[in-house]
Simulated assay, not measured.
Amino acid sequence: MKAVQSFIGEPVAIVGAGLVGAGWAIAFARAGLTTRVYDANPSLSEKVLPWAAKQLSALHAHGLLGEPPQVVANRLVCVNSLKEAVDGVAYVQESVLERLDVKRQLMEDLDAIADADVIIGSSSSGIPASAFANDLEISPRALIAHPVNPPHLVPVVELVPSTQTSADTVEFVDRLMVSIGQSVVHVRKEVEGFVLNRLQAALLREAWALQRDGVASCEDIDKTVRDGLGWRWSFMGPFETIDLNAPGGIADYASRLGALYYSIARSRVDDGPWNAELIAQVEKDRRQHLCADDLAARRDWRDEKLMEFAARKSSISGQSVSEPGSCTGA
């Protein structure tokens, strides 16, 4: 297995050129890596370079790119076959459809053609690697590397080994991700949805239920997160939030409010899946605030806001705010 230090300058491969794969391509190219992009759907591959050019120009305008946009763009290469994409690369970022059969077929294809030491990270949002990457020659060299969309603007990435992933693979991908500027979360055991989407699922479950029950509109629920919870969550997580929200810290908070949260959780035990009627209801509610024709433009707006946030965050000194150090004593 190659050392990460020797990796700089060698190509990486992105397989799957949708929104997530295209974002990954920018993340790797921005870090100095020649990045080959392949998708079985040629129309997706054709969109990557023009989209990336716009994103790189915007990143540069916000001071988030250390080189001229064209220099980074020149590292992006769209190729016409899976073999051409993975030939000679040390790392492949799989970003194909979130379907078990599609991912398994790709792993079998990679098993047949990839180099003997290639490492494969899957962008799977919730399907554990053991479900589609086990019992192959490449199995010890495959794991989940799940990002937030878009990965070039939001840095967190979850690393989730399968039951057959080697410790060396986890270490390699950890170092690689850190080297390209990602924030690595180690998920210690395989669970559906990993950490990020299980947390998001809990919030979404309640959000849909509140709208369904007529408690609040989509916009007011969004306001509650956007203008309330999100302010704190933009620079600290839920455990630190509650640790600071009671005079005696987290144990004091749990003593004061634990029963309330338990009662809230119990009130949702019989909720079923989002049904067609509810989906239509929420769709109608959302379209009062954003027309379907405006979704693409609003995604561009979101990316612009994320760049502004990233630029602002990188300019703020005093990292001890997020990394206060260890306590000593009792």
Score class of each variant (00 low, 15 high):
residue 285 D to K: 02
residue 217 S to N: 00
residue 235 F to A: 01
residue 249 G to W: 07
residue 317 S to P: 06
residue 308 E to K: 05
residue 249 G to I: 05
residue 237 G to N: 07
residue 243 D to K: 09
residue 297 A to P: 02
residue 313 K to Q: 11
residue 311 A to G: 10
residue 245 N to K: 09
residue 268 R to M: 08
residue 232 R to K: 13
residue 281 Q to F: 01
residue 274 W to V: 14
residue 323 E to I: 03
residue 227 D to Q: 10
residue 299 R to I: 14
residue 292 A to T: 11
residue 255 S to W: 05
residue 248 G to H: 13
residue 227 D to P: 00
residue 289 H to S: 07
residue 307 M to G: 07
residue 293 D to H: 11
residue 253 Y to S: 04
residue 318 G to W: 03
residue 312 R to I: 03
residue 298 R to S: 08
residue 258 G to C: 06
residue 321 V to L: 15
residue 321 V to K: 13
residue 235 F to I: 15
residue 234 S to W: 01
residue 261 Y to R: 03
residue 258 G to P: 08
residue 256 R to I: 06
residue 322 S to L: 09
residue 313 K to S: 14
residue 227 D to C: 04
residue 260 L to I: 11
residue 217 S to V: 00
residue 318 G to N: 07
residue 251 A to Y: 13
residue 296 A to L: 13
residue 306 L to Y: 02
residue 300 D to L: 14
residue 306 L to E: 05
residue 304 E to G: 14
residue 279 I to C: 11
residue 280 A to F: 10
residue 278 L to P: 04
residue 309 F to E: 01
residue 221 I to K: 00
residue 290 L to P: 06
residue 322 S to D: 11
residue 275 N to W: 10
residue 319 Q to S: 12
residue 251 A to C: 11
residue 222 D to F: 01
residue 238 P to F: 05
residue 248 G to P: 05
residue 236 M to V: 13
residue 322 S to T: 14
residue 269 V to R: 12
residue 318 G to I: 04
residue 245 N to S: 15
residue 288 Q to T: 14
residue 255 S to E: 13
residue 310 A to T: 10
residue 315 S to E: 08
residue 266 R to L: 11
residue 320 S to Q: 09
residue 223 K to M: 04
residue 265 A to N: 14
residue 312 R to E: 08
residue 299 R to V: 15
residue 252 D to Q: 12
residue 322 S to K: 05
residue 235 F to C: 09
residue 316 I to Y: 07
residue 227 D to F: 08
residue 241 T to E: 07
residue 220 D to T: 01
residue 254 A to Q: 14
residue 216 A to E: 00
residue 319 Q to H: 03
residue 323 E to Q: 08
residue 298 R to P: 00
residue 265 A to E: 13
residue 318 G to Y: 03
residue 322 S to I: 13
residue 240 E to D: 12
residue 220 D to H: 01
residue 264 I to F: 09
residue 256 R to W: 02
residue 253 Y to D: 05
residue 266 R to A: 15
residue 265 A to F: 15
residue 279 I to A: 13
residue 267 S to W: 06
residue 243 D to P: 05
residue 230 G to M: 09
residue 227 D to E: 10
residue 230 G to A: 03
residue 289 H to W: 08
residue 231 W to A: 10
residue 278 L to E: 12
residue 292 A to H: 13
residue 293 D to G: 15
residue 215 V to L: 03
residue 301 W to K: 09
residue 309 F to V: 00
residue 318 G to H: 02
residue 281 Q to S: 15
residue 222 D to W: 01
residue 218 C to G: 02
residue 254 A to G: 06
residue 313 K to V: 03
residue 255 S to M: 09
residue 273 P to G: 10
residue 300 D to A: 15
residue 305 K to F: 02
residue 226 R to F: 04
residue 251 A to P: 02
residue 287 R to C: 03
residue 254 A to E: 09
residue 313 K to P: 01
residue 265 A to I: 06
residue 302 R to G: 06
residue 285 D to I: 02
residue 315 S to Q: 14
residue 297 A to Q: 12
residue 272 G to T: 10
residue 235 F to D: 04
residue 321 V to Y: 14
residue 321 V to F: 15
residue 283 E to S: 15
residue 315 S to A: 15
residue 262 Y to S: 13
residue 267 S to T: 06
residue 257 L to E: 07
